[in-house]
Design a protein around this nucleic acid. Structure first.
Length: 204
DNA sequence: CAGTTGATCCAA
DNA sequence: TGGATCAACTGC
């Protein structure tokens, strides 16, 4: 069952925590690839020096962030990897949550092919299947083609994981500083990264 | 550990 | 228009 669109709207830190444990699904050629979210980072709009939209910077790339919540903000980093974010704030406020890691769920063979070009992968490769923002996009085949898609779409969306099977039954949620934002001055230390403590698919 | 890689951004 | 920068990842 899909979440309603207003589930993505709210204080971005709350949304970042709320996403943990739920299922991200991408339907590729009619087949589902999915994983449970185990790590997120919040990027809080104009006041956050780590955010692409810091200072209200509004360009072709960041335009999606100024739109309504529950849509996909995707960008290319280091010329080779994609990162997937969900917009969280009302129209006009450019905030979002970066999905940093998943526990593989459905379509694992397709994800293995996308990542390593084969379906029989080693234990080590399995551990690396979706344990980082670039890795999970490669595995789920998320590219710029999905930019701007609504989480109400039938292609890319989130599903509710019930309490009984939710990862929070087995793991504690922890906060810490965000990764890879050394340029962000005072924002470097903000504890806006959220993850399940000790979960094997959290990025390192 | 260094090399990769190209879109994006802003200063000229 | 050019050069710096970058919400990573890979393979030595």
């Amino acid at each position: 069952m899909k979440w309603p669109i207003n589930w993505y709207e709210g204080d971005t830190l709350d949304v970042a925590k709320r996403l943990l444990g739920h299922r991200l699904v991408h339907v590729v050629d009619g087949k589902r690839r999915s994983g449970l979210i185990v790590e997120t980072e919040a990027y809080k709009g104009p006041d956050d020096k780590a955010a692409h939209s810091y200072g209200g910077r509004r360009t072709e790339r960041t335009e999606i962030m100024f739109g309504p919540p529950g849509h996909a903000y995707i960008y290319l980093i280091y010329g080779m990897y994609h990162c997937f974010n969900i917009i969280t704030a009302p129209e006009g406020t450019p905030q979002g949550v970066l999905i940093r890691a998943l526990e593989p769920d459905e379509g694992i063979e397709d994800m293995a092919s996308a990542r390593f070009g084969k379906t029989d992968i080693t234990k080590q490769q399995y551990k690396n299947l979706t344990s980082g923002p670039g890795k999970l996009c490669r595995a789920l085949a998320i590219t710029m083609e999905q930019k701007g898609l609504s989480m109400q779409s039938d292609e890319l969306f989130m599903e509710i994981v019930p309490d009984e099977t939710h990862l929070s039954q087995r793991y504690e949620i922890t906060a810490g500083p965000r990764i890879g934002i050394d340029y962000a001055e005072e924002a470097v230390h903000y504890p806006w990264r959220f993850y399940f403590q000790g979960h094997p698919f959290v990025s390192k």
